[in-house]
Amino acid sequence: MNTVLVVEDSLSQRECVSQQLTWSGWNVIQASDGVEALRQIQNNSPDLVLLDLIIPRIDGYRVCRLIKANPHTQNIPVVLLTGKGQHLALSYGIKHAEAYVGKPWQPRELLDTLKRVLLDTKKEPQTASADAWTDYGILIFKIIQLYECRVQPWTEYGSEIIKLYEKALAAFEQALIIEPEHILANHYRLMAEKNWNSLQEKLEQSQPCKVCPYYHGTDGINCAVHPWGRPGEFCLDWELS
Rank of each mutant, 00 (worst) to 15 (best):
Y165E: 05
G102A: 15
Q13S: 07
G102H: 08
L111A: 00
L38N: 06
C212V: 01
V28S: 03
I183P: 05
E15Y: 06
E148V: 09
R39G: 04
R39L: 09
P213I: 07
P125Y: 04
A185H: 08
L51T: 00
R39S: 11
N27W: 00
E233S: 13
R62D: 15
K194Y: 13
D112P: 00
P71I: 11
N44W: 09
Y92H: 15
L164N: 08
H226Q: 05
W238V: 06
N43R: 11
A192K: 12
E8W: 01
W154I: 07
V4Q: 01
S32Y: 09
W238M: 09
G34F: 03
L21C: 11
G83R: 05
Q152P: 00
N44L: 07
L11N: 07
L190M: 13
Q207M: 11
Q174V: 02
E193H: 10
L169Q: 13
C16F: 12
S241E: 12
T155R: 10
F234D: 10
Y100F: 15
F141E: 14
P107I: 04
G229H: 06
C209A: 11
I58E: 11
G220N: 09
E148C: 08
Q152D: 14
S159K: 02
L50M: 01
Q30G: 06
G220L: 07
T22W: 04
Q106C: 08
S129C: 12
I161K: 02
P153M: 07
V7H: 03
K142H: 14
A97C: 04
L66I: 13
A132H: 04
A185P: 06
C209W: 04
G34P: 06
R39Y: 09
E160H: 02
L5G: 08
E233V: 13
E166L: 05
K103Q: 15
L236Y: 07
D59K: 07
Y61I: 15
G60D: 07
V117Q: 04
V117T: 12
Q30S: 10
W105D: 08
L38M: 14
V4E: 01
Y157H: 11
L146P: 01
N222C: 09
E204K: 07
L21V: 10
G232E: 12
K202Q: 06
Q145E: 15
L21W: 10
L199A: 14
W26T: 00
S159R: 03
R57K: 14
A168E: 03
W196V: 01
G232Y: 08
Q106W: 02
I54G: 05
R62Q: 15
L81N: 00
Q40F: 05
Y92V: 02
H187R: 15
G34Q: 05
K103L: 15
S198N: 12
Q200V: 01
E204T: 00
I221R: 14
S12G: 02
V117I: 14
Q174M: 09
C16R: 12
E156K: 09
E166K: 10
A130R: 11
D52G: 03
P208I: 07
W133L: 03
K84D: 00
A31S: 12
P107T: 10
I162L: 11
G158T: 00
L203K: 02
L240P: 01
Q205N: 06
S24P: 03
N27S: 08
V151Y: 12
Q126V: 06
M191V: 13
N195A: 13
K68C: 04
